[in-house]
């Protein structure tokens, strides 16, 4: 795909994360202009697309897999994406989304805490939202992931470095760069 003039079909996805990685992605400042010239945004929380498209070249995923909707979505993303990049600690290791993993009945415990114990009015657990998974998972425990950019959030420079390398057809060297937290 590199070297030809066709623009890279590019998607970003926001799962169980805080959107900080998307912020950091946007923080690439003027370098994002260079990037923008090479890509065509196919799907992103930054735009209004409801369905994940087919034939995406590169998808950057932020956030862990926390509920059933995300579980289905990541499988679909994998199916329709050539290169899948996990960005940020949540997508890479699960990060604090996985804090509930050490609890018995983790999903129930956090729902109770959020919707009952700390509710100021009308405490009830919602049933019209996707079902929480018992344990949150990093992407690579569910699907094959091609590249990882750890960090909470990863620095804009690191994101830019990895994307530049990948788009140039090279494998980014993460030694000395992959900093968690």
């Amino acid at each position: 795909m590199m070297g030809d003039l066709r623009k890279i079909n590019f998607a970003t996805v926001w799962l169980s994360g805080c959107s900080g990685c998307h912020m950091s992605f946007l923080d690439q400042d003027e370098k994002i202009v260079d990037l923008a010239q090479k890509i065509q945004l196919a799907y992103s929380p930054l735009m209004d697309a409801k369905i994940f498209p087919e034939n995406v070249d590169v998808t950057v995923v932020e956030g862990a897999i926390g509920n059933e909707e995300q579980l289905n979505l990541i499988k679909k993303i994998r199916e329709h994406t050539k290169i899948l990049i996990a960005i940020g600690d949540c997508a890479v290791t699960g990060n604090m989304v996985t804090l509930r993993n050490v609890l018995d009945n983790g999903a129930g415990a956090i729902l109770k805490r959020a919707y009952i114990e700390t509710a100021t009015e009308n405490p009830q657990i919602p049933n019209d939202v996707p079902k929480l998974l018992e344990q949150a998972r990093p992407l690579n425990e569910i699907v094959r992931v091609d590249y990882f950019i750890p960090g909470c959030p990863p620095s804009a420079d690191l994101i830019n470095y990895v994307l530049t390398e990948i788009m140039a057809g090279r494998t980014p060297n993460m030694e000395g760069k992959a900093k968690y937290g």
Partner: peptide
Amino acid sequence: AKEFGVDHLR
């Protein structure tokens, strides 16, 4: 982990 490029856990 940073030094050795442990960018994810298999």
